[in-house]
Design a protein around this nucleic acid. Sequence first.
DNA 1: ACGATGCGTGAGCACTGCTCTCGTTGGGTG
DNA 2: CACCCAACGAGAGCAGTGCTCACGCATCGT
Lengths: 228, 228
Amino acid sequence: MVGIRERARAEHILDIKRVAGEQLSTSGAAGVSLRAIARELGMVSSAIYRYFPSRDELLTALIVDAYDSIGSAAEQADAAVVDRNVRTRWIEVARSAYRWAGEHHTEYGLIFGTPVPGYAAPQDTIGPATRFTTVLLSLLVDAQRRGDVNAAPTTIRPDIRRELASMRARLEIDIDDQLLAAGLLSWVTLFGTISFIRFGHFTNVIEDCDTYFEHVLTHLGTSVIGFA
Amino acid sequence: MVGIRERARAEHILDIKRVAGEQLSTSGAAGVSLRAIARELGMVSSAIYRYFPSRDELLTALIVDAYDSIGSAAEQADAAVVDRNVRTRWIEVARSAYRWAGEHHTEYGLIFGTPVPGYAAPQDTIGPATRFTTVLLSLLVDAQRRGDVNAAPTTIRPDIRRELASMRARLEIDIDDQLLAAGLLSWVTLFGTISFIRFGHFTNVIEDCDTYFEHVLTHLGTSVIGFA
DNA sequence: ACGATGCGTGAGCACTGCTCTCGTTGGGTG
DNA sequence: CACCCAACGAGAGCAGTGCTCACGCATCGT
């Protein structure tokens, strides 16, 4: 049987992260206060340290949760595509990221925004961080396998081909240079667009950001990656 | 003649911003402390408030300076291209942004990173903020005028054409839909790539980020915008 | 049954942004 | 030139922060 302490501990950790998440969405990362969390949970501030050794560790936990959240959103969006058409899958996955960023504004800023100087992402974060890109990569792998892609060939310099080959080996995937480069560029442009929209760089530039995002989406799928 | 006070005031403001900038680059935006600045300048903390009404205003001043800094870097890079070839100008301007981001890591994070919730960019920032994009836009205008551009036509939906037309009217520029859309996409991809590199999202993904950036640069200039 | 360990408490340290009052001093005005 | 207001620096003080530590109590494994 699981002990009373163990259960209470798990619940407390959840409570702390919940309140911290509320503070995060209302006041940003700077507004997450251990003392305020303790106050809201009816405990003394020093008690928090029994569960998180420092404020940084709490934020790290929130980062991990955020990566997991956007990753699982993408996984679900991908799984929901019944006909497994790679073009549809790409659009749905990209849309899920856009939607997630809109619904979790500050969490998005936490993982795709300014990194804290001197704060090296702990090992705990790199696992969840790859969850989203894994969805994207498996999508590309399937596209390659099914031959559902025919992009206009672009010139790729030898040093970049070497870089791509190294990446291919590291990830143990079978995607040719053309598709891999296009996928990489689309990945960056996808989050570049989301960041520009969510961080307000399109103010006074683009009025209907939702529509523009859809445009970028189809453009990337059609002209850059070249899904059939 | 300019008074003693006026001169002293201007110098103090410069001093405060200088020390704040040092703190910014070593400890990030969160590490900028009015009291620490006052200590370093040998004045009492409350004296700072004679020059900046709040910490936020100080940060705003740093943001304005950062926008000005990257803007003037781009202007200089553009002006240094003697033959006025638009392709060369694009590459030099984009490179200047990449270089600036590398040399001013935290300042870059300040303007392209996570926005503070509830912090609406004051009017003071929007002027300097457009300085970089103005360089980019004038480059596109020249390309259009000289006919130095021949991109593969992509499909642009009517609602996006409407958005582009509105943008064209607002900015009072003469760039056709095709080029404007390509420029917009390149702008986003440019800063998306810089952010991914500088914010560490390419760790364990791309080894030689400098080379990859050069690749993206030429790709955007050639395949997306299509400079002659 | 007992000892080690987990846990909540409260005081305390060093720090933060910001406010207020109090003299002093510089600089336009009569 | 004298005067008076505004700008200024100093210092105390308030409310808040992250974090540490010694202290007891409760729980759990032996």
